[in-house]
Write a protein that binds this DNA or RNA. Structure first.
Length: 154
DNA sequence: GCCAACGTTGGC
DNA sequence: GCCAACGTTGGC
């Protein structure tokens, strides 16, 4: 079992959108960073992930979800009308991957960025490291449990 | 292969 | 809206 953290801007797609989606499930697509893509390719069905709201009034972790389908070619890379269209990606050698995720839980309170930074066990969490902007990052078991404990305490 | 220019991310 | 940090692009 692996643990992940996925960022999304709530104005574009937030955890409520996931909770309201058909089967409470959606494609996590549009990722256009190689390191993030490589992490997505490591994801296995059943892995768990936190949902992080970025670029908003209260950035932080708002809930969790489960990987429902492992990496497959991201359809948006071939769609000229999609903002994530990549004209240099070829259908016989897709450059970008998507996974499907399934809603698990919305936390009662957002675990805010400053709150996460207060937690000694999370000091090494990748999104807290200076300058790290990756939208897909792995978490250790310890980090996963520490965040869950914060969620339950709120 | 170097590196300057540019675009993007994302917190504040 | 600002700006630091980072990734990508493309000329050489």
């Amino acid at each position: 079992m692996n643990y992940w953290l996925l960022k999304s801007e709530p104005d574009v797609f937030g955890i409520d959108d996931l909770a309201d989606a058909p089967q409470r499930r959606t494609a996590w697509d549009g990722v256009r960073n190689y390191q993030a893509r490589n992490f997505m390719r490591e994801m296995r069905r059943g892995d768990e992930a936190f949902f992080y709201h970025s670029s908003c009034a209260r950035p932080g972790i708002v809930g969790r979800m489960r990987i429902a389908r492992e990496a497959y070619p991201d359809p948006t890379q071939f769609d000229p009308d999609d903002p994530h269209f990549d004209p240099r990606s070829r259908s016989d050698a897709p450059r970008w991957s998507a996974v499907d995720v399934e809603f698990t839980e919305r936390f009662a309170e957002t675990i805010t960025l400053p709150r996460l930074r207060e937690e000694p066990e999370l000091a090494e969490m990748l999104i807290l490291r200076r300058g790290n902007r990756l939208s897909v990052t792995p978490l250790t078991d310890t980090q996963w449990q520490a965040v869950l404990a914060l969620a339950e305490a709120s």
